[in-house]
Nucleic acid binder design. Structure first.
Lengths: 345, 345
DNA sequence: AAAAAACAGGCAAACGTTTGCGTGAAAAGT
DNA sequence: ACTTTTCACGCAAACGTTTGCCTGTTTTTT
């Protein structure tokens, strides 16, 4: 009841037993007599004793903490992922240390270092866009700290990761539009430097060729994901000789920008131009003019799987501290979700 | 380069000096000769020595970690707040341990306990909706762990908190509508059990009476924040003898539900009915029919201030470990933001 | 040249807990 | 009644670091 937490030592002193006895009694170690066990437990209860997790971590060299480094906490995708990570960590009695890199490589490196020094048991990382060197990850490997990458995966081999397979969703997206009768389908993609752009493009091409359609590269335009950039991209497509009647966009926001612009141009979004995009943000369910469908990437699921893998790795490590046997490479399939809620309840 | 991190001991052994010398050398303690300092630092560098933060925490009884407990990580408001918290903690060299209560009191209690046991230096909490007992916070006080509450504040005195003053925003909201010529203004509020509902109602009433308008309690209806609830609430208001031409809603989502319903009823949202709401979610900037304005609560700012206060408390504590002098009660003023982006760039 | 001060560094305890090993005493076996 | 087990517990080291105090050497002071 004072100011300082009770310790095992105090209990030992009061009960005139050794600290080891107290420790074992609290762990219900069979070698401690039942009477002493009860005495110890009773006193511990009375004093409000709670083990100093910090001391235990230090002693065991294990913190029961996993670190999470992501680009941006406030992005819907990541906050959903983190929510999942925290949930699954909690279930397995782990705590979560978070930090955001703000897509800055240098900060990411610092954070990895810091996490290593605070002795997290393992790490979950979605790497920064700009990250181009990967020595900081090697270091973790050297110190035998398991890492699971998610969503943004560095181009390394022998790593664990869970990512989303954009191809399925992309193909679904294009197929969906083809089924609806569209024959000229544009793609407003993101910057070519982003891996995500590559995936979208590949899916698009694959879907076109699979359907034995002539694939026209000039129907693919890049944009910098800003509103102005989107407008320019859309203008480009609209001026195309085979003016597209449907457009796939890099993400929901691009679709929204494009839609706004299209409406200002007087285009009928029910008949003349339809959009399909990526992310499936809740927002599009509230809008009158929105992409007709969007590719869901299941951030919660991804976070969950990544955390599961990491925790699995950690428990394996406890049992056999030798090296890794195999690498987890999990792909969660993206999926096209139709935007049903247009003006209906 | 091996598997285990280098320690101060190893450096000491190699250099044939004592560990204390190494420790002091690395801290550039003046009592260590410059030559040894350099020797030590050089070797430390070479071995890739990094202090074991865990051991330091244990030794010092200080973890340089703050805990954050919030209801739901994936809610935009909270993820923005956490982002701010992490940013300011990072700047002051603190790390952040997070956990979500999912608005469950029991879990919240467990989390507080867990955070205490892992010896976080301080805690930032937004309490769960259901929390009705506050013994777990008292415990923190007994153990001299500073707590700063934010956004959701428990009804206790002698606590630190930062919250958002809804009144200013509410008054602004109503005034805004009055200025636009509306004379019958409805309020679709949240459940009466929520403190947030009370604040909105008070602001509404205050604004009405300040403008010498007869305040009609029947223009205030509650809803459970679901889409159906919102429809019912709106129907109620529309059937009112003094049918409102403007409505203030509990949050943006309620506005969106109401707007959707109103449009299905064929109401002209430019002329006959206008909405103002709370939250100012980015989403409303993308919509064709959206609240004309929304009360911003500045989650990032709130998180930032809360973290600042906590870190301040912690540094004070280092200097004078005696009790608290004063309690921080910070109110950030909410502010009505007009929704400008309707179909314009 | 003797005394005092400044310098450089070592010793050891402390933080709280876990755990391998050792050891008396009681119980069981013969 | 004597040896062997079993039982119940204590001892002490270890985890890595910090820090108050002590000690030996050098420099300064007078």
């Amino acid at each position: 009841m004072t100011g300082k937490p009770a310790t095992i030592k105090e209990i030992a002193k009061i009960l005139n037993v050794s600290v080891s006895t107290v420790s074992r009694a609290l762990h219900k170690h069979p070698t401690i007599g039942i009477t002493t066990q009860l005495k110890v437990q009773a006193l511990a209860e009375k004093l409000g004793y709670e083990p100093n997790q910090n001391a235990i971590s230090f002693q065991k060299g294990k913190t029961y903490t996993i670190g999470v480094i992501i680009p941006e906490l406030s992005e819907a995708f990541f906050s959903a992922a983190i929510s999942a990570i925290e949930d699954t960590a909690y279930k397995r009695n782990y705590t979560v240390l978070i930090a955001q890199s703000h897509d800055n490589e240098e900060k990411e490196i610092q954070l990895v270092e810091k996490m290593k020094n605070s002795r997290v048991d393992g790490l979950l990382i979605s790497v920064a866009k700009t990250t181009s060197s990967f020595a900081h990850f090697d270091m973790l490997k050297r110190f035998n700290i398991p890492v699971v990458f998610f969503d943004r995966i560095p181009p390394l081999k022998n790593i664990h990761y869970v990512a989303c397979n954009m191809e399925t969703g992309s193909i679904e997206a294009v197929n969906y539009l083809l089924q609806k009768g569209h024959r000229s389908i544009g793609l407003i993609n993101g910057p070519a430097t982003l891996a995500a752009s590559g995936e979208r493009k590949e899916g698009y091409i694959k879907a076109m060729t699979k359907n034995r359609l002539k694939f026209d590269p000039s129907l693919i335009v890049s944009c910098n994901l800003t509103e102005e950039g989107t407008r320019a991209a859309l203008d480009g497509l609209l001026a195309h000789k085979r003016r597209p009647t449907a457009i796939v966009t890099f993400n929901d926001y691009v679709s929204l920008y494009a839609i706004k612009h299209a409406r200002n141009l007087g285009i009928d979004l029910d008949k003349d131009l339809q959009f399909v995009s990526y992310a499936n943000l809740p927002i599009i369910n509230y809008m009158d003019y929105a992409p007709v469908a969007s590719v869901e990437q299941f951030p919660y699921l991804q976070g969950q799987k990544a955390a599961d893998i990491l925790l699995d790795l950690l428990s394996r490590k406890e049992q056999s501290p030798d090296g890794v046997q195999a690498y987890y490479n999990v792909m969660v399939e993206s999926q096209l979700i139709e935007n049903k809620t247009k003006n209906s309840y």
